[in-house]
């Protein structure tokens, strides 16, 4: 049996041992059974699976840094959450009042669709949306802002059937493509 390729994890070895059981033994660090100590097939498979699982354990230990500025964007978003005015949507059969959280959530979702920006605080006050964004380093800021406005307009039109209010965009940060 090859140690590196072609190992069928659903298979049963000629000795009657299930490969999946050997995998469980490896993962749970169970002592090798007397049979496996004698069986060459079991030893080969156990070595292969052990190598793969060591890779998983190494990955689990690798640090995962958070993107630069993430906490600042979070705190800004939290401060803005739920503040602002309701949005009036006048219809033929009456007026619909939407809380500021609904409007800002839709705007945030729309802004996220623009891949070169990351939204932070979003507010709706006095009939205008204001949104803070980080823009990807190297991106055209005017084009990014236009794309955000366009996405928000489309989202509000699709979801609420209304024209978008004015959208004020503040670029508060830049980020590097890929994350941090």
């Amino acid at each position: 049996m090859s140690a590196s390729t072609g190992l069928a994890l659903d298979a049963t070895l000629p000795c009657g041992t299930d490969v999946a059981d050997l995998l469980d033994d490896v993962i749970e660090n169970r002592p090798t059974s007397p049979h496996a100590q004698r069986c060459l097939d079991c030893q080969t498979v156990t070595r292969t699976l052990g190598g793969r699982w060591r890779t998983v354990r190494a990955a689990a230990r690798a640090p995962v840094p958070e993107p630069a500025g993430l906490r600042a964007r979070l705190v800004a978003a939290l401060h803005a959450d739920g503040t602002g005015d309701p949005l009036r949507v006048d219809g033929e059969r009456g007026t619909l009042l939407l809380g500021p959280r609904v409007v800002t959530q839709l705007a945030r979702r729309a802004a996220r669709q623009v891949t070169v920006v990351r939204p932070g605080a979003v507010r709706y006050t006095e009939g205008r949306l204001s949104i803070e964004v980080a823009v990807r380093y190297g991106a055209d800021i005017d084009a990014a802002a236009a794309a955000v406005r366009d996405r928000i307009a489309r989202e509000l039109a699709d979801q609420l059937g209304i024209a978008a209010p004015g959208v004020d965009i503040s670029v508060t940060d830049v980020f590097v493509a890929g994350g941090a």
Binding site: T55, A58, A59, P67
Partner: peptide, 24 residues
Amino acid sequence: DGLSDVGIDTPVSIEALAAADAVQ
């Protein structure tokens, strides 16, 4: 993304990073 795409500023071996990428 692999973890290397996120950007790591903590000293970490190439091997550990490669393992993390492979697993991701």
